[in-house]
């Protein structure tokens, strides 16, 4: 964007206008010649699927090409770095998950929210504590057994710096229980160990356990949520038990923090339009990502991320 004296003089007015009519006013200003999308995860995973689903929708709306580059190395830290170092012109965006802040809290990611800013949150998967139905039937069963056998209950999850581990640490802290945690390389290994009874429970997203719930071999006994989920009215939540844990795996779009606010607002408007579209909602429904509303705008998402980051740092420090 070229600034002349006149546009500078008009800037206050433009900002005022943009506050009044966010989507409309800036959609005309924001005309990228193409978009490079860094994906902070390997090809084929949930974040990659998200980016590739959104790709044609974004291309259609902006009339340009979006190129996807997967940068899975270092838990996505390289993707964060590339995005933070890209030109702040709105032509480089990043698709990332909550790993951005869990790895940041664990000291694995040098790029903080001062260099990378959220554009929008599109998915907010509900994290649940899942157990083998042969061992436990209800949350009460689990808690009673855990209280009677301190240090004997093993919970599985994916990776050492993940929302699964944060949920484990948080649950230990809030309940005063003495649970142990084993991180697996992938969700499948943890599920296999839970199915065979080698571990007592695992943290997993509600979108990923549908098949097991249908078969009755595993069931969620606790959801990290404010209130009961409409689709699972019988599933107890953390908050109703007095444990303030509501985070889960979230997926969203990020950008270089130096990008002009109006550009960010314009991109946010495009993603909001995508989020509300029938195509996107069909995908979210199919992938069970609509259990909890996903949408958060740039400012709200930043607040959530900062809160969670501070909490994760506290959890890891006290461990």
């Amino acid at each position: 964007m070229h600034f002349t004296r006149r546009t500078l003089a008009l800037a206050p007015a433009a900002i005022a206008l943009s506050l009044a009519l966010p989507a409309l006013a800036q959609a005309q200003d924001y005309a990228p010649s193409g978009i490079t999308a860094f994906v902070a995860a390997g090809a084929g995973g949930g974040t990659d699927n998200f980016a590739r689903t959104v790709q044609p929708m974004l291309e259609e709306r902006l009339g340009i090409k979006m190129t996807i580059i997967n940068l899975p190395a270092a838990s996505g830290a390289l993707a964060h770095q590339r995005t933070a170092q890209s030109a702040p012109d709105g032509e480089s965006i990043e698709f990332a998950s909550s790993t951005l802040i869990t790895s940041r809290a664990a000291g694995q990611n040098p790029i903080g929210l001062d260099q990378l800013t959220p554009v929008a949150r599109m998915q907010s998967d509900v994290l649940t504590l899942v157990v083998n139905t042969e061992k436990y039937d209800t949350l009460e069963d689990f808690l009673t057994y855990a209280r009677d056998n301190p240090g004997q209950i093993v919970i599985g999850g994916t990776h050492a710096a993940s929302v699964d581990r944060m949920a484990f640490l948080g649950l230990n802290e809030m309940t005063g229980l003495d649970l142990a945690y084993i991180p697996y390389d992938n969700e499948g290994s943890a599920s296999a160990n839970l199915l065979s009874g080698n571990i007592d429970g695992m943290f997993n997203e509600i979108s990923a356990i549908q098949g097991y719930m249908e078969s009755g071999k595993m069931k969620p006994i606790l959801a990290l949520a404010d209130e009961r989920l409409a689709a699972y009215p019988d599933l107890p939540t953390t908050v109703e038990n007095g444990w303030d844990l509501t985070f889960g795996n979230e997926r969203g779009v990020f950008i270089n923090a130096e990008t002009p606010p109006e550009t960010i607002a314009a991109i946010e408007a495009v993603f909001e339009d995508i989020f509300k579209s029938e195509d996107y909602q069909v995908y979210a429904r199919k992938a069970n990502l609509d259990v909890r509303p996903g949408w958060l705008g740039s400012a709200d998402y930043r607040v959530v991320l900062e809160e969670n980051l501070a909490y994760f740092e506290k959890l890891l420090a006290s461990e």
């Binding site: 290994s189 599920s191 098949g211 097991y212």
Partner: peptide
């Protein structure tokens, strides 16, 4: 079981989910 035995099958699992199928013991 809906548990991938290798890297590529993990991605095929992801594809099942995108197609609205739910892999698992009853799949």
């Amino acid at each position: 079981l809906g548990i991938p035995g290798s890297g590529t099958t993990a991605i095929i699992l992801g594809a099942f989910i995108v197609h609205g199928l739910t892999p698992g013991p009853t799949f």
